[in-house]
Design a protein around this nucleic acid. Structure first.
Lengths: 138, 138
DNA sequence: GTTGGTGCAAAATGTTTGCACGGGG
DNA sequence: CCCCGTGCAAACATTTTGCACCAAC
């Protein structure tokens, strides 16, 4: 846990809520703000949803968590220390899976070479149809 | 305009609102539901925002428009008859640009081969940092 | 004439903000 | 002791829904 140091070096305070939010993101893996809220709440700790939002924003600023949009309006947060991965979201069954960045490396290189655009792989989500749903469709 | 036929073949009715919404999406290129609402409203036609949402949903179902998420919660709609393209969104300046599907073809093939996952390229948005912002950062 | 579509208003989501109190440093 | 962070309530933004009326077919 590197939370205390990261907070201190930027002049922020260490609070129970911030620790719990980071812990929730770490344990849940793919968590929406509401998931995090529920996780902390279930542990009988009193927190407010707005505090969760503020904590997530701060943790992201500190580089301890990242977020991605897995569709509609629900952002999901990941611990940043987890290996980077790309999300695949199936439009038919709603399933979410992950692939290593290597699978999209050539795309990233192409964008960088052609446009000078540096893709943020950790934030990348690809929508489509998974193998099961594609098979079922025929 | 193939709206009338598409509607009829599935038993839907042709209304002025649906025509205007499709026209708005076509002319605007990258439009949020609210953009569409404004466009129609500016032409002195009375429409309700909820009608716009319902029309967009129907048009998407008919395959006449598609939508993508260009960040946060704002979905943007495109006419489906426009050539497929991938969106690049710069996290720093907020700029949106487009690239041909060829740039991501290898990624799509890899996903299909490794996972049997069929990527929906038209819906793909890559977040990152554009050339200008990357340069400015150093 | 039927029935689906629209307008309107209210509800449901999801996120942000102002403010006073309490705890961290 | 100072002042940042939290809880709380209200404000916001966006999308959805129920219902009565009107228009497309």
């Amino acid at each position: 846990m590197e939370l205390p140091e990261r907070l201190r070096t930027e002049g922020y305070r260490l609070t129970l809520q911030r620790q719990l939010v980071l812990q929730a993101v770490t344990e849940l893996g793919h968590a929406t703000p509401d998931d995090v809220f529920g996780w902390v709440r279930d542990r009988a700790e009193k927190v407010n949803l707005s505090t969760v939002y503020r904590a997530l924003e701060l943790l992201e600023h500190l580089g301890l968590v990242t977020h991605t949009h897995l569709g509609h309006g629900a952002p999901t947060y990941h611990p940043a220390n987890v290996p980077e991965h790309v999300h695949l979201v199936c439009r038919d069954c709603g399933g979410v899976s992950e692939v290593e960045p290597a699978a999209v490396a050539s795309m990233v290189e192409t964008l960088e070479a052609q446009r000078g655009f540096r893709a943020d792989v950790a934030h990348l989500t690809v929508f489509g149809s998974c193998a099961e749903c594609t098979d079922a469709g025929r």
